[in-house]
Computed example of a mutant assay.
Amino acid sequence: MSTDYQRAREELGRRLRELRVECPDGRLTGAQLAQRLGWQQSKVSKLENGHQTPTDDDLRSWARATGQPVVFDELRARLKGFESHIRSWRRQLAAGHGPVQETWNTLVSHAQTMHALSNAAVSGMLQTADYARYVFEGHSALQNVPRDTETAVRARMKRQEWLYRPGKRLNLLMHESVLWARICPPEVLAAQLDRLLGVVGMDTVHMGIVPLDADLPLTLGNSFYVLDDRLVVVEDWHAELWLDDAETIALYRRVWGILAEAAVFGTEAQQVIARVRRGIKA
Results as ranks from 00 to 15, higher is better:
93 L>Y: 12
70 V>C: 13
133 R>I: 04
72 F>I: 08
138 G>I: 03
72 F>V: 14
125 M>I: 00
69 P>I: 01
138 G>E: 05
115 H>N: 11
93 L>S: 05
88 S>L: 10
121 A>I: 10
69 P>C: 00
108 V>Q: 09
59 L>Y: 03
125 M>P: 12
116 A>I: 03
83 E>M: 10
51 H>Q: 15
116 A>T: 10
51 H>C: 05
76 R>E: 10
98 G>Y: 01
60 R>Q: 12
65 A>D: 01
86 I>D: 14
84 S>R: 11
118 S>A: 11
52 Q>A: 05
58 D>K: 02
52 Q>M: 02
55 T>D: 09
75 L>E: 09
85 H>C: 13
94 A>P: 09
132 A>D: 02
78 R>S: 11
101 Q>F: 00
78 R>Q: 15
70 V>Q: 15
88 S>Y: 15
71 V>C: 05
114 M>Y: 07
75 L>C: 02
128 T>S: 02
71 V>H: 12
57 D>L: 03
93 L>G: 09
112 Q>S: 15
54 P>L: 02
121 A>V: 15
113 T>G: 06
132 A>E: 00
77 A>Y: 03
52 Q>R: 12
121 A>K: 03
73 D>V: 06
60 R>I: 08
94 A>Q: 11
116 A>V: 07
100 V>E: 13
86 I>P: 12
138 G>Y: 00
115 H>V: 04
111 A>P: 11
111 A>K: 08
134 Y>H: 14
124 G>A: 01
126 L>E: 04
81 G>V: 07
100 V>I: 04
124 G>C: 03
107 L>R: 14
72 F>R: 14
118 S>T: 06
129 A>Q: 02
122 V>F: 08
81 G>T: 05
56 D>L: 07
56 D>E: 11
102 E>R: 00
58 D>I: 08
68 Q>G: 06
77 A>P: 14
132 A>W: 04
110 H>M: 03
123 S>V: 04
91 R>F: 08
126 L>I: 04
88 S>M: 06
93 L>C: 10
58 D>M: 01
107 L>F: 15
80 K>V: 13
101 Q>I: 01
108 V>N: 05
56 D>W: 02
53 T>N: 11
92 Q>R: 15
111 A>H: 11
137 E>L: 04
118 S>F: 03
79 L>K: 10
98 G>E: 09
136 F>S: 00
106 T>D: 12
123 S>M: 04
88 S>K: 12
117 L>N: 06
120 A>R: 12
88 S>P: 13
103 T>L: 11
60 R>M: 02
